Amino acid sequence: MRTTGRAAPMRKIADGTIDPGHESRTPGEPIRIQYAALPHRISQAGSLDIMLITSRDTGRWVLPKGWPMRGKTAPEAAAREAYEEAGIIGQADAAPVGSYHYRKRRRRGTSVLCRVEVFPLDVLDELQRWPEKRQRKRSWFSSEDAAALVDEAELKTLILTAQDAILRAFDREVTAPAG
């Protein structure tokens, strides 16, 4: 994410471990924190659709994500990234549905290990114009197809497990008595 007119936000560093099936972590290597939106909608058939976007550098299918932002909570930062990268407006859950790890490649050929906290984002509107429209593609997929399209094993699992939690929450919301 690009910021203009103010100082760059601080990068949060996590002290944690990663799953064994993960790219190796050098002893003492910091893990940077990012926040992602898991944009979703309920289809006419009652199943869950997930929006993915392409990355700018490789064109892989990914979630909208970015670094923490000064003055914004984690869910607010995730929603902001969804707007900038995917052109969607939505309501992010206050709690993450999970997290995954990946290596972010840098321009000078190095990489940094990132833990991405993922916040479900109920999509309310899809814009025709947005900041990164010319740099990315966006598309809706079934949960199963979205999970199959992303590269990170942890993210595949997260999408499939989030599907159940999101649909349960939707069912509770629909069947709740009017207040």
Rank of each mutant, 00 (worst) to 15 (best):
I88L: 07
L149R: 15
P30I: 04
Y35G: 06
R2E: 13
A94I: 06
V112K: 10
A37L: 12
E132Q: 13
V62R: 05
R6V: 12
D93L: 08
S55Q: 14
A92Y: 07
A82H: 01
L52K: 03
A153S: 14
P75G: 13
I42E: 09
P27N: 06
D57K: 11
E76M: 14
L121N: 02
S143H: 09
T54Y: 08
L52A: 02
A153P: 04
D125W: 11
G16M: 06
R106I: 10
G109K: 07
V123P: 07
R32V: 02
Q128R: 12
M10N: 09
E85S: 03
H101D: 04
V112S: 13
L121T: 03
L127D: 05
H101T: 04
P20G: 14
R172P: 05
I159E: 00
R2P: 10
L48E: 01
E81F: 08
A37R: 15
L124H: 12
G98D: 03
R56N: 13
E152F: 00
R105D: 10
P39H: 10
E154W: 00
T157Y: 03
E23F: 02
G179E: 10
G21V: 04
Q135P: 03
V118Q: 01
Q135W: 09
R106Y: 08
M1C: 05
M10D: 07
A74P: 06
V97M: 13
G98V: 04
T4H: 13
L121S: 03
D15E: 11
